[in-house]
Design a protein around this nucleic acid. Sequence first.
RNA 1: GCUCCCAUCGUCUAGAGGCCUAGGACACAUCCCUUUCACGGAUGCGACAGGGGUUCAAAUCCCCUUGGGAGUACCA
Length: 489
Amino acid sequence: MDEIRVRIAPSPSGNLHIGTARTALFNYLFARKNGGKYVLRIEDTDAERTSQAYIDNIFDSLKALGLNWDEGPDVGGEYGPYTQSERFDIYPKYAQILLDKGFAYECYCTPEELEAEKEEAAKNKQAYVYSKKCENLTEEQKEKLKAEGRKPAIRFSVSKAQQAFHSSPVIHFNDLVKGDLHQDTSLIGDFVIMKSNGTPTYNFAVVVDDMLMKISHIIRGEDHISNTFKQILIYEALGADVPKFGHLGMILAPDRSKLSKRHGATAVSEFVEKGYLTEALLNFVALLGWSPSDGVEIKTLDEIAQDFRIGEVSSSNSIFEYDKLNWMNGQYIKKMDIKKLTEMAKPFLKKYDLSELSEEQLEKVIAATREPITILSELEHDTAYFFGKDIEYDEGVKAENIDTEQAQNILKYFDSQLDSYDFDNEEKLHEQMADFRTYFKENYGIKPKVTMWTIRAALTGRTRGADMGVILEVLGKDKVKYRIEKAIA
RNA sequence: GCUCCCAUCGUCUAGAGGCCUAGGACACAUCCCUUUCACGGAUGCGACAGGGGUUCAAAUCCCCUUGGGAGUACCA
């Protein structure tokens, strides 16, 4: 096992979760940094909870994030198929090997019997461990049970595997991020590896797949630590090399509970719909657990991959706070190519008739409004006054910035000068506006700031917004005149 | 309940015994820049969970307590 191979193995029982995205990212980074392969496998053994829409969402989200896989369901690869439901015929073979080696046995217990065992354990305040009552069934007993119509599940004999490969019931492994981890296997009950319906359980399917796909390093969430001990035993029982494991802390909500819809978005696609850029999302999520050696936090995927070391990843949980994500998203919005950004902004501007503006004008609008925003959805509000004929006034703006005597004078004068302004010449218009401000400053002592504020209020209904030059230019003389005259009482 | 993991500013983190009167980023506050708002810049506020050890020396190592998280399925 010298080739480095990692995988991301999402279960399509929901859209791609931000936590899964981070796990995918760290696997991707590890593969890139170490010249390995990164594979995608879909774990859909539970048909009940799987849907094609989720599979599509997972593919799309991963691609949008730039986490492209070297092998996977769509691109194929040497070790396919990469969808578990297409591998159902291979698990029984390995279960049989375990049966033959004596590391597994058939279990004919009914759900009711199992339930009774659990209740008994709970009553005695004992940790539940399967009773092993089916471990030594004779052939006659099995036949009898089968005759009753019972279908067996296959259980893994934890104690037999432990005794065969470890001198102590307490087994250890060296985790890539957490270091030495241990568990007393006598506390692990003989668990089911093949359900009575013939499908594998998670713990069995992952091992078989990871083994067959020659996965060398398994990087995943720490919620899998307890599974790891079971999996190590299966690898050993199968006679396979045990891969290296690395467990990442979880991503928690600000209240330290599991991140759920109640805290806002959880799926990558939801973040995108809200106006987050996948680049920012990815960069942000990388910082949850990992930190750059040079202190520069805004980095491309490639840059992060260069600097990534799995052993330096934080082993504790981290909380998902929007503040920094928002800031980072804003940074990406400011730096993004304007044409690309304009394209991305369009879905957020559905409310408006975009045909009012040329592509060039729209770009100007976006360029002028991108600065203060943090997420794309803010664009709808911030660009409102560029569309339509009439505008809505923010609260208080009319009374404070338009209806005063001074404001009215400014507006009237502006209106009288309008015809002489050259809206087709950016530079000239800029000069003319400067003259306009100077006029009020020199003749009436009105600060340029106030003069501009008045015009802005009349034109946009607000006291904050894009650069005045851009507003004038994009609106054009007719609209400007219309709004100014409307503001004059 | 049992088992496992984790523990530095509000949050993300740097820190692998002396370089730490603990550094950076976000957020927050103030100031500067500016034709508005913003961007940007500067400054400030702000943490080693608690208690025991080990050591000449501990945020860094050990133990206990507390707190948080995870697992405990014929879910993945």
